[in-house]
């Protein structure tokens, strides 16, 4: 409140990132527990939420999404949480009631939204490597680019530091003595609805919410700190309370707000500023570098060649384009003179260029340089084979001569067969004709010769006219 610290290192605790799930005794999903406990004889209801792997499942949200702080929007926690897909959501940092201005530091999913300019209030954040940070930060630390904050928000009063209640020290650091009529002290000690954020010894992020109404129901900061200590919380800061305290579970209001509606009969959730949200795991980066789909916190890369947890590495296989090409998202892009899926094949004669896509433009169908397409043709229009292609040209000439020889032999053989077949047919035809002319069984019946029947026919005629002959 009172002092800006631009540079240097201030009092804060850094908790190393928890091991990735699954971790024995740690649920991979957020665990929400409801309680109704007695504080100094008063029954107070609320919720405690533990979140494993908070780097991927916890976000600080601007009201109604990105740009909300710049536009000084205010929205109910539900209105901000539902579009963001929050499974659990609570109100977050403090804000100016009249203008809607977000107060303190706000870093939302890696975007620095609001800066306190080094003003000393309690901070809670997660750095890029998953380190949980609680305490006071200089402006230089907030703007760190080596291991920047991915999520960061400001509260008022560092409740628990390294396993011990830190409220008295916080009051001194956060400038209690400058406040009029002890308003800060009252803020600490009055019973009300409260919210807090911190982490436990397992590195799980902890969200706390207690229902109440200022000076009538609820708990003070001491009671909240004691409750959190009993839940193994190591570091925690106090967030906005009173009518701002709101708890939303699966998109539905699950707490009893203390603000009245316009109709005094009912209670209404306040339109607040930032929201703390527990969601399904985000990928790193959330859009999988534009080359994949985030499924349960893991990028499933699109195409056949994007690889890596962030889908930002191109991989064309172990041959790596045979060192003759560049791996692209569509496969190997071969250098000039090479072709094939792995760029392992040289251009065939008559082709050149990247991927051997261009035909040579040489006279007399001479081959060209497979890389540049340059032709080597003499003034007398005779190919001058490039030294490196002489052997290939010789192979081609040999291949051509052999082909022609085989083709000729095959044709000659077919011609011979055809000749033999024709001769055979001709001779066979003549023999057949001769056989018919001088054959034994050629029979040409004659009806009459010189007007008389033949003797045999005569006999047959007589027999037909004597039916009683034996």
């Amino acid at each position: 409140d009172c002092a800006r610290v631009r540079a240097g290192s201030l009092e804060h605790e850094s908790w190393p990132p928890p091991p990735p799930p699954p971790t024995p005794g740690v649920s991979p999903h957020p665990v929400v527990r409801a309680f109704v406990s007695h504080f100094s004889g008063r029954a107070v209801a609320g919720h405690l939420t533990r979140v494993a792997a908070p780097l991927r499942t916890f976000s600080v949200l601007e009201p109604r999404g990105p740009g909300g702080c710049a536009q000084r929007r205010r929205a109910t926690v539900e209105d901000t949480a539902v579009p963001a897909g929050c499974r659990v959501a609570q109100n977050g940092g403090f804000f100016r009631m009249g203008t809607g201005e977000c107060l303190g530091n706000v870093v939302s999913d890696g975007r620095r939204v609001s800066s306190s300019g080094g003003l000393q209030n309690a901070q809670f954040g997660i750095r890029r490597d998953g380190t949980l940070v609680t305490g006071y930060l200089s402006e230089e630390e907030v703007l760190d680019t080596v291991n920047p904050f991915i999520q960061l928000l400001s509260g008022v009063v560092w409740l628990i530091r390294n396993g011990s209640i830190y409220i008295n020290e916080s009051q001194a650091i956060e400038c209690d003595e400058t406040q009029e009529t002890g308003s800060f002290s009252k803020f600490v000690n009055v019973i009300s609805a409260r919210t807090a954020v911190g982490h436990d010894r397992k590195g799980q992020l902890v969200l706390f919410h207690a229902d109440g109404q200022t000076e009538q129901r609820g708990i003070n900061l001491w009671e909240m700190a004691e409750f959190l200590l009993g839940q193994d919380v190591v570091n925690a800061i106090n967030l906005d309370g009173g009518g701002s305290a709101t708890f939303v579970l699966n998109g539905t209001l699950a707490s009893y707000p203390s603000d009245h509606c316009q109709d005094n009969m009912w209670r209404c959730p306040r339109h607040v500023s930032t929201v703390v949200c527990v969601h399904e795991p985000h990928c790193q980066p959330p859009d999988c570098s534009g080359h994949g789909t985030c499924v349960d916190g893991h990028c499933e890369c699109t195409g056949h060649f994007w690889r890596g947890t962030a889908c930002n590495e191109l991989d064309c296989g172990p041959s790596n384009c045979s060192q003759h090409g560049l791996c692209t998202e569509t496969g190997c892009h071969c250098d000039a003179g090479w072709m094939g899926s792995n760029c392992s094949e040289e251009c065939p004669l008559g082709w050149y260029g990247p991927g051997c896509q261009r035909p040579c433009q040489c006279e007399h169908q001479c081959p060209c340089d497979p890389q540049t397409g340059n032709c080597s043709v003499s003034q007398v229009k005779q190919c001058l084979w490039p030294a490196e292609s002489t052997s290939r040209a010789g192979e081609m000439a040999f291949f051509t001569r052999t082909t022609w020889l085989v083709l000729t032999l095959v044709l000659v053989f077919l011609l011979l067969i055809s000749t033999v077949a024709n001769v055979s047919l001709l001779l066979g035809s003549r023999a057949e004709r001769n056989r018919h002319l001088g054959g034994e069984y050629a029979y040409h019946p004659l009806q009459e010769m010189n007007g008389e029947l033949l003797a045999t026919e005569k006999d047959q005629t007589e027999e037909s006219h004597s039916p009683f002959k034996d």
């Binding site: 409140d1 800060f184 109404q213 203390s258």
Partner: peptide
Amino acid sequence: LGSRVSRDDDLLLPYSRARARTLR
């Protein structure tokens, strides 16, 4: 619309509303 709008009547402020926070 008004039936669901909060009156913002449960104020719990860490610092006095009467003065802006000034730098030492």
